[in-house]
Simulated assay, not measured.
Amino acid sequence: MTQHQHHSAKEPWQNLPAGFADFLDLEARLNAPLRNSALSLSAAALSTQPQHIVDLGSGTGADAIALAKRFPEARVHALDVSAELLGRVENAAVHAGLAERVELHEADLNSDWTAGIPEEVDLVWAALAMHHLKDSAQVLSQVFKKLRPGGVFTLIEMSGDTRFEPAVIQDQVQNVRSHGHTNWTNLLEEAGFAVVEQHEQNFQAHGSTPDGREYVARQLRGRQIELKEETLDNISFRSGRKVWVAVRPNVEGGVEKQKTVTVDVAVIGGGAAGLAASVALARSRRDVVVIDDGQPRNAPAHGAHNVFGE
């Protein structure tokens, strides 16, 4: 396993609060159904088996490991600004027997994270990594340039409001977060991507399971609410998630890229006059190109013979 460092300025995420990495591990376990769904959507969008995958904001490594398992021919480049989290990724890769295929990059996504990443990446994955960046549009542009034509970008972000059940708990919660303000579809299209799939699914944690109970308790404590252990069994937490699967088109702007040619004459319009002129010029050994949209005005007619007119 190799590790690279390509960031300069110190970021707050490099010094994590106590217990934060354990919280990410907990959330990753609960997030498995959504991760598996997004992996299936990504695989369906890929035209070939990927060789290089980039995991932006890899956290504790659950997604990087899942990507390496799902695509056994690929090398996964796990990027995160936190050395502590990358240590978790490394341990997870070793434990899964995937250390040779998971490469660590200590990188700040707000700067030039593309250094050290191979050209022509097949798949870029970003799960809950984009919403806190200073300039998401810039990062999307970097992703677009790094992907090969036909490459896939999978984006997972929070959407809508977080909510607790039953309602009596929700009524006690202050400052419920909303994540529905960023129009990721527009940002993706402005960056040049073609969005081929959008999928909404809830992230859920229920106090009836050990992981769910711990997660609910942490969320409530973060809102200054402490409840007895037995009370947590009947409380659930829900947060919206949305998956975008976008492709860097094989062609620019959805139109096949034309090669540049040098000619003597360009004839605009492939009607009777344009074609006659083109034939005459070609017979005079001139290089000619005819530009026409293929929609003649007399298309409904089966034929027109010896018609006088201007």
Rank of each mutant, 00 (worst) to 15 (best):
M1E: 04
H4Y: 05
H6R: 10
H7F: 05
S8A: 04
K10L: 09
W13T: 03
W13Y: 06
N15W: 00
A21T: 03
D22E: 07
L24G: 04
D25V: 01
L26S: 03
R29T: 05
A32F: 04
P33N: 03
L34R: 12
L34T: 03
R35V: 07
N36M: 10
S37C: 01
A44R: 14
P50Y: 03
Q51E: 02
A62N: 13
I65H: 07
I65L: 06
L67H: 09
A68I: 11
E73G: 09
V76H: 04
V81Q: 14
V81A: 15
S82W: 10
L85C: 01
G87A: 03
G87C: 08
R88Q: 14
N91A: 13
A92D: 08
A93L: 06
G97S: 07
A99F: 08
A99T: 13
E103N: 04
E106D: 01
E106A: 01
N110Y: 02
S111L: 07
A115K: 15
I117G: 06
E120L: 06
L123A: 05
M130Y: 00
H131P: 07
A137P: 12
A137E: 11
F144G: 06
K146D: 02
K146H: 04
P149F: 07
L155M: 01
E157Q: 05
S159D: 07
F164Q: 06
F164H: 00
E165L: 07
A167W: 00
Q170T: 05
Q174A: 00
N175W: 02
N175I: 02
R177Q: 12
S178A: 05
G180S: 08
G180A: 03
H181G: 07
T182R: 11
N186R: 14
L188W: 01
E190V: 03
E190W: 01
E190T: 05
E190K: 13
G192I: 02
E197D: 05
E197V: 08
H199T: 01
Q201N: 01
S208C: 13
D211L: 11
G212Q: 10
G212P: 11
V216N: 13
Q219P: 10
R223M: 03
I225H: 10
T231A: 13
N234Y: 00
S236N: 02
G240H: 04
G240P: 11
V243P: 02
V245W: 08
A246T: 12
V247W: 02
E252K: 15
K257M: 11
Q258K: 15
Q258D: 02
V261W: 12
V267G: 08
G269S: 04
A272M: 09
G274D: 02
G274V: 02
A277F: 05
S278V: 01
A280G: 09
L281V: 02
R283H: 07
S284H: 10
S284W: 00
R286Y: 09
D287R: 14
V288D: 08
V289Q: 15
G294V: 13
R297C: 05
N298P: 09
P300Q: 02
H302D: 11
H302E: 11
A304C: 14
V307K: 09
G309V: 04
G309R: 14
